[in-house]
């Protein structure tokens, strides 16, 4: 079980219509790869976030499939087009079935 999972997202609060904005996301998660061993030699079972998606008003921006080779506290930076005022929805899917969500609003002036 992953504990203390906390998503952090950086999105500009305002944008002009059709502008490309840079989005940075970070989620604190141990991303146990399933390769490491504990002090008594037992393999620590894999526990990672296996998928990350970002949508704006229901339209997809990016959908990432993640493998154990993604570092601890997965970080992503990408660019999205903002056509109108609305909400960015970020979703992370954990191996254990948990889903972490975060929403950020953007106002088009």
């Amino acid at each position: 079980m992953a504990s203390g999972v906390k998503p952090r997202v950086k999105v500009p609060g305002k944008a002009s219509a059709g502008e490309a904005v840079t989005i940075k996301t970070l989620i604190s998660h141990p991303m146990e790869s399933g390769q490491r061993k504990d002090s008594s030699g037992n393999t620590i079972p894999r526990s990672i976030i296996n998928r990350f998606t970002c949508d704006f008003n229901g339209e997809n921006v990016v959908d990432v499939t993640m493998e154990p080779a993604i570092s601890t506290n997965p970080y992503f930076q990408f660019e999205a087009t903002v056509p109108e005022t609305g909400d960015f929805k970020f979703t992370w899917y954990d191996d254990d079935g948990s889903v972490y969500e975060e929403t950020k609003s953007v106002t088009v002036a």
Partner: peptide, 18 residues
């Protein structure tokens, strides 16, 4: 490592990660 799928609202088909 990872597969990035870009949707219609991706402003550029680029991404960075660790």
């Amino acid at each position: 490592v990872a597969t990035f799928n870009f949707g219609p609202l991706a402003a550029s088909q680029s991404a960075s990660t660790r």
